[in-house]
């Protein structure tokens, strides 16, 4: 280090994300966005969910229905037997008089009701999502990205440490300096949960809804409790992924929007280091959190 030791924090760019991680991340953003919007279009064809193998039409656990109240059309959402009026959002929405539909036009692709087109979008991006996911998993296992950067270290799992991280995150205080080089336990938990649980669950429950695939892998039906249960779990997991994305975006903004976006585009992430304790420059740090 030729820089003078002032003791003041200095910004250093570390190489945080490998090319595969960055590429598959953005392809995933594209695929999951269209999967969600086209998935809501498909849901709208029969906006009700059931548990078990078959639909017991009188007892959905979730339904978004049109109804009439005082001569006016309204949207009614039923969750576990509780009714909510959701006109304009669920059950009845649209310009002018509106129309019966589960989710509103702005939440579906295409905006108008068309199951056939919704399915086209959904299966096209499902293939992109699956291929992209396998490339990410294979490469991340080969380069040991998952084992090295995402798998929690023993000391990170101690309850006191986890609680400390929860408290500091809730205060929106994020690790600085050397600590910011590696993922903390909450990041690891969230990323692993999405990568190894939620996303595979979407694929598994999606395939379980296929009558063709069911004949090859009937065990999927036992695993998820039947086709209608699989459809319900598919729906719930989709919203869990949406909640992950919301928290993820809040954290990106709270911990430095442009720094985070740059690191997912160019791979370089700025951390502040105390020059009294020199940090390795960017190229030496390659692979640290890549």
């Amino acid at each position: 280090m030729s820089r003078a030791r002032t003791g003041k924090p200095t910004k250093v760019l570390v190489y945080r994300h490998a090319g595969v991680t960055r590429t598959t991340h953005w392809i995933n953003v594209l695929a999951l966005s269209f999967l969600l919007l086209s998935g809501l279009q498909i849901f709208n064809a029969h906006p009700a969910l059931y548990w078990g193998a078959k639909s017991v039409f009188a007892h959905p656990w979730l339904a978004m229905d049109p109804a009439e109240r005082a001569g006016q059309p309204v949207g009614v959402t039923i969750i576990f037997g509780h009714q909510f009026t959701t006109t304009g959002l669920f059950g009845w929405s649209g310009k002018g008089q509106g129309e019966p539909r589960g989710f509103p036009a702005w939440a579906t692709v295409p905006t108008y009701r068309d199951l056939a087109d919704g399915r086209r979008w959904h299966f096209f991006f499902a293939w992109l999502f699956v291929i992209n996911g396998f490339v990410y998993l294979a490469m991340s296992l080969i380069t040991r990205h998952i084992q090295r950067d995402l798998w929690p270290k023993g000391w990170q799992l101690k309850p006191a440490h986890v609680w400390h991280e929860v408290v500091t995150h809730a205060q929106l205080k994020f690790p600085k300096g050397e600590e910011a080089r590696t993922y903390n336990i909450l990041q690891k938990g969230a990323y692993l949960g999405v990568i190894l649980v939620l996303l595979p669950l979407m694929l598994g429950t999606g395939l379980t809804m296929s009558p063709g695939f069911d004949s090859a892998a009937p065990w999927l039906l036992d695993l998820f409790g039947g086709r209608q249960s699989a459809r319900s779990i598919h729906f719930i997991s989709a919203w869990l992924i949406v909640s992950f994305v919301i928290v993820h975006l809040v954290m990106v903004v709270a911990s430095g929007t442009w720094n985070n976006i740059r690191s997912m585009v160019t791979g370089r992430y700025a951390i502040e280091v105390d020059t009294a304790a020199p940090a390795a420059p960017a190229n030496d740090a390659a692979g640290e959190v890549a």
Binding site: I42, F43, A45, H46, A48, Y50, A53, K54, S55, F57, L115, R119, M209, P211, R227, Q228, R231
Partner: peptide, 12 residues
């Protein structure tokens, strides 16, 4: 057998 409508519901 289970009859799976393209709309998403199933009947047996």
């Amino acid at each position: 057998t289970r009859h799976d409508c393209v709309e998403g519901w199933s009947s047996i």
